[in-house]
């Protein structure tokens, strides 16, 4: 059909290009329309409402940035964002390095081996979010953990020691990696599959070994996929909530209930009835995620198209 249209407009090249682009966006719209109502109801409207709450007080009066300065001064604000910074750094670092590394390794293997490993990596991710954290609650308790010998290696004889304050960012990053990395390894593997065989062959003929092929050829070609993963992982990382919340309850309060910034927002809203302060923290998180996303998009040319 496109070809027909193209053929029927042989004259002006510029006009053709415009129409082509218009048609393409029409097609795109058809695919995105079913998602739009959900995006608006559960994404955009709540964001707008949060923005409204963040700049007003509980009577609806305009207060400007008051909610923001007030929450920043809260004694739990900086520790919570500090925890998140540490956690996100660990989780993103391990995600990017290990996921890409494992995917590259997998891609170099024979097909049967690869599919077995792909399956193994994906299994933990098949557990629903909260359930996988419950699994970890048992894994971290030396009294019941099948890996207790490993915990003892780290001088840990009690559950309370497993979740000692200094270890928490590491523990949460480990849980997140375990539940989330498998899926991404499969995605990266898929991305590697889009690299034409001819390219690889040409590189080999030029004398490139497997390491050079992986690092010099494959890695740059899946750069955009890595950027995509980083943006999504950054957003989920900064919004950490379920892990610390469940560990808080399971440890009978040994872990603060305002460990992460999202938890602090939750506590502000429901313990103190301060929905405006909670909204301000949510906006902080959106802004941080947006800035990070823009930086990554600019740096990697994620949305740059070839033509």
């Amino acid at each position: 059909m496109i070809d027909q249209l193209k053929a029927s407009a042989p004259g002006a090249v510029g006009a053709q290009a415009t129409r082509k682009r218009g048609l393409r966006s029409l097609h795109g719209l058809a695919f995105t329309v079913p998602y739009l109502p959900f995006l608006i109801t559960f994404g955009i409207l709540p964001m707008v409402y949060a923005l409204y709450l963040a700049v007003t007080d509980d009577t609806g009066g305009w207060v400007g940035v008051d909610n923001f300065t007030r929450t920043v001064r809260d004694y739990r604000f900086l520790p919570a964002f500090g925890h998140i910074l540490l956690y996100t750094t660990m989780w993103l670092g391990s995600l990017v390095v290990l996921v890409v590394g494992l995917a590259l390794l997998l891609h170099g293997r024979a097909n049967r081996v690869t599919s077995v490993f792909r399956f193994l990596f994906y299994i933990p991710g098949a557990l629903a979010g909260a359930a996988s954290i419950l699994v970890w609650l048992f894994m971290l308790d030396p009294a019941v953990s099948p890996g207790s010998f490993l915990l003892h290696l780290f001088d840990t004889d009690l559950f309370v020691e497993s979740i000692a304050p200094g270890r928490l960012p590491f523990v949460f990053a480990m849980i997140a990696f375990w539940t989330g990395a498998g899926g991404w390894i499969v995605v990266m593997y898929g991305a590697l599959n889009t690299i034409p065989d001819e390219l690889e062959e040409a590189a080999r003929i030029d004398g490139a070994g497997p390491v050079t092929v992986a690092l010099r050829l494959k890695l740059p070609l899946i750069r955009k996929w890595i950027a995509y993963m980083t943006i999504l992982a950054f957003a989920t990382g900064t919004q950490l909530f379920v892990e610390p919340q469940l560990v808080n309850q399971a440890s009978l309060g040994m872990v603060p209930d305002t460990w992460s910034s999202n938890q602090l927002a939750y506590q502000l809203a429901f313990r103190y009835g301060d929905f405006n302060g909670a909204a301000a923290i949510s906006i902080d998180l959106i802004v941080i995620a947006l800035i990070a996303a823009v930086l990554i998009v600019k740096r990697t040319g994620l949305f740059r198209t070839e033509d």
Binding site: P46, M47, Q239, F241, N262, A265, A279, S282
Partner: peptide, 8 residues
């Protein structure tokens, strides 16, 4: 993130 933005 969906769970996390429960509040909102």
């Amino acid at each position: 993130p969906a769970l996390a933005s429960l509040t909102v």
